[in-house]
Write a protein that binds this DNA or RNA. Structure first.
Lengths: 211, 211
DNA sequence: GCTCAGTCAGTGATAAAGTCACACAAGCTC
DNA sequence: GAGCTTGTGTGACTTTATCACTGACTGAGC
C-alpha cells in the first residue's frame, strides 16, 4: 500500500514547529466501508478530520425514518462534532463510512490549543461551520418546498456520469428523506418514460435520461 | 426611556481593558418591529449581537414560499452572519425584527481581533454555532417527517399561555413552511373540535385546548 | 441441483398535504 | 356607500405518505 500522504489543508497555515509537533503526535485511523464513525447520542471522543474517503451523516427521526444531512469528503472537518465536543451532549446524528476513510481524531485539548494559537486554524473551523450551516439551510428549503420527482431527478443527475448506479430504493429514500414506495413509484415512472432501466439494486441511465 | 443597560454575556469573559475599549467604540442600533436587519443575498456589514428584542430569521424558497428557520432573542448572536462576513457571499435568508430590538453591529476587524485575543469570545461564538446547527438539524427532521397537524398544535401550545394569539393564517403557514390553505383547514378542524375560536387575525384558545 | 430465509421491488387502497381557483367577508379610504 | 386591500373558507384535484400485501431475486446450506 505504501505510506499514504497524510495531510489536511487546515494544517497548512500552522507555523512549522506547531505542525510537526501535531503531526508527530497524531495517529490516523482507518475506517472501512459501512463502519460507524459515531452514533446518535454518543459522546464525542475528538474532532474528526477527514483525510480521504467519504462519510455520510444522517439522522433518524422520532418516527424512525432516516434522512441524509450531508457528506464529508477528503480535506473536510466534522464540524458537527465540535458542538458535541464542547457541550458534551451528543447530537442526534450518525456518521457512516461510505468509502474507506482515513481520519485524524483530534483530541479536545489539541483542538483548544490550536484554536488558541492559530488564526488559520480558527478560520478553517469557521469556514467549515459556515458551509455546514448553509448546506442545512438549503436542505430545509428543499425538503419543505421541492417536489419529490424533481429532487430525485436532480440527485440521480448528479451521479449519472458512470451510466449506472448500484443502490437500493430504500437507500435512495433515506437520501431524500421519504418512503421507499415513493421512490419505487417515481423510478417506475421514469422507466416508463424511457429514461432509466431498473434492475435489482441497479439503475441504468439511458441516453434519453440526459435530454 | 432612560439609558438601556447595554450588555451581552459574550463580553463577560473579556479582560476589563478590552471590554471597555470595545464598549466605548460601539454604538447600539435600534430596529423597530417589522424592520429588516438583513435581506437575502445582501453582503454583511457586521456581526449583529442581539441585546434585546426578538429577530426572526426566515428563508424564501425558489418557489417563493417562506419558512422560519429560527429566532434570536436577547443575548444571542447572529451566527449566520459570520459565514457571510468571512466569505463575503450573502446567505439566502432574511432577518425580520419581531419585537423592537437593540443590536451591537460588530465590524469585521473587531470580530477578528476578539477571535484572536479572547478564548471566552471564541467559545461563545462556537457555542452559538453549535446550537444553531443543532436547531437546523431538528428542523430538517421536523419538516421531513412530522405531520402538519401535530406541528401546528405544538407551535400553538408553546404560545397559548396568554389565551389568544394575534396572527394571520399566512404568517402561521410561514412559521411551519406550508401553504395558507393547509393551516386554514387544520385550524377549522381544531375549531370544530372546540379547542379554538377563530376570528380575523385572531386565535382564541378554549379550556378544551389544554386537555 | 433444491429449499429456505432474507432482501428487494411492485402495487392497490387510503389518508395527509400541497396546489389552483374562486367566493366572500371584514376593514379601510375616498 | 363604492371600491379597494387583506384575510379566510372551500371544492376539486394532484402529489406524497402510510399500510398491507405479493412476488421476485439471491445466497447459504444441504
Amino acid at each position: 500500500m505504501g505510506v499514504p500522504r497524510v495531510r489536511h489543508s487546515i494544517f497548512d497555515t500552522l507555523p512549522e514547529s506547531l505542525r510537526s509537533e501535531i503531526l508527530g503526535v497524531f495517529q490516523t485511523m482507518h475506517f472501512e466501508h459501512g463502519k460507524i464513525l459515531f452514533c446518535a447520542g454518543e459522546p464525542c471522543s475528538g474532532l474528526p478530520l477527514v483525510l480521504s474517503g467519504v462519510v455520510r451523516v444522517q439522522m433518524t427521526g422520532l418516527s424512525g425514518n432516516n434522512i441524509v444531512l450531508y457528506r464529508m469528503g477528503a480535506d473536510e472537518i466534522c464540524t458537527l462534532s465540535i458542538g458535541c465536543l464542547m457541550t458534551g451532549e451528543g447530537f442526534r446524528a450518525e456518521a457512516v463510512v461510505e468509502e474507506d476513510t482515513e481520519v485524524f481524531m483530534m483530541p479536545r485539548d489539541v483542538f483548544d490549543r490550536l484554536m488558541d494559537q492559530s488564526a488559520g486554524f480558527r478560520r478553517g473551523i469557521m469556514d467549515s461551520y459556515g458551509r455546514r450551516l448553509n448546506d442545512l439551510m438549503l436542505l430545509v428549503e428543499e425538503v419543505a418546498f421541492r417536489r419529490m420527482d424533481e429532487r430525485l431527478f436532480c440527485w440521480l443527475e448528479a451521479r449519472a456520469e458512470q451510466g449506472f448506479l448500484m443502490i437500493t430504493h430504500q437507500e435512495l429514500a433515506t437520501e431524500l428523506g421519504t418512503a421507499r414506495e415513493v421512490i419505487s413509484r417515481l423510478l417506475k415512472e421514469l422507466e416508463r418514460k424511457g429514461k432509466l432501466r431498473l434492475a435489482r439494486r441497479r439503475i441504468e441511465f439511458t441516453r434519453q435520461f440526459f435530454d
